[in-house]
């Protein structure tokens, strides 16, 4: 073997040995135990402190509130959703001074969820913050742990809550359900066997929306002889929906 190759080879061997030795010395302990990563990384992540205690712990002490809440519309809303992170509160129970979680009482808190937005699902209870009892704190009428409406509900709304709430925000808010749907009394007893009907002719809408109708001037009027002939109105429009504005 020529001399220069020998010298280069020695040089290469030294570097390779250095590389192998440093690998043995420097690769962190536990690397590759479960996969191509440090096993200790999992321990570090698991050991991170929590801030949200979770609703199960809350229920241990506040079982009375939990019971009320779980029977109400807010049954799916967990405590810390409104009261904020409360692990400090749980941890401080054994201390002299108990840290209390926040208890928001102003209108802004409820409106985070309940302010009207067209992007929210149809039927989700929403209000127009400006017109719905302005300035009054929500809790003066509604109990957040049992937020049922202040008056007893009956009639159609008892079952058709979603449609009723949506209609309440639409231009048709003042029209009663039975003005468009004829409903037999048996529907209340056996709803699926006796369904309410939907308008079968265009005349019903035409009463207000036909050209020459005597309704208010801001009500949109169309020429019933030309507009959408061959279709019933509700096949294109959504009378319950604010879109009908």
């Amino acid at each position: 073997m020529p001399g220069q190759v020998k010298r280069l080879l020695i040089f290469v061997v030294i570097i390779c040995v250095l590389f192998v030795v440093s690998r043995v010395l420097l690769v962190p302990e536990g690397f590759g135990k479960y996969g191509h990563y440090r096993a200790t990384a999992i321990d570090t992540i698991i050991a991170l402190p929590i801030n949200y205690a979770g609703h199960i712990v809350c229920n241990d002490c506040h079982d009375d509130i939990a019971e009320t809440k779980d029977a109400s519309y807010h049954q799916g809303v967990n405590c810390e959703s409104c009261h904020g992170p409360s692990n400090d509160h749980v941890q401080s129970l054994e201390e002299d001074e108990i840290i209390l979680p926040s208890a928001p009482r102003d209108r802004n808190q409820c409106s985070i969820c309940h302010a009207y937005s067209p992007a929210k699902a149809t039927g989700f209870p929403q209000i127009d913050v400006v017109t719905h009892n302005p300035v009054k704190p929500c809790i003066s009428c509604h109990d957040p742990h049992a937020p049922d409406p202040p008056s007893v509900i009956g009639g159609c709304i008892a079952c058709h809550r979603g449609i009723t709430r949506t209609k309440a925000l639409s231009a048709h808010s003042n029209i009663e359900c039975n003005e468009c749907h004829t409903t037999q009394d048996e529907h209340m007893v056996n709803p699926r066997a006796f369904r309410p009907d939907k308008p079968r002719s265009r005349d019903l809408c035409g009463k207000c929306h036909a050209k020459g109708a005597t309704s208010e001037t801001f009500t949109k009027k169309v020429d019933m002889t030309e507009h959408g002939v061959g279709y019933l109105c509700w096949q294109c429009h959504f009378p319950h929906h604010p879109e009908a504005n």
């Binding site: 992540i45 698991i46 050991a47 929590i50 949200y52 979770g54 967990n78």
Partner: peptide, 23 residues
């Protein structure tokens, strides 16, 4: 996001799931 791995190991739900009011 870690799916709140530190919470999972304590038997808790991820924080976002815990607070979501509409499930």
């Amino acid at each position: 996001c870690t799916f709140c791995y530190h919470r999972l190991s304590r038997g808790l739900l991820p924080a976002c799931v815990e607070v979501c009011p509409t499930k």
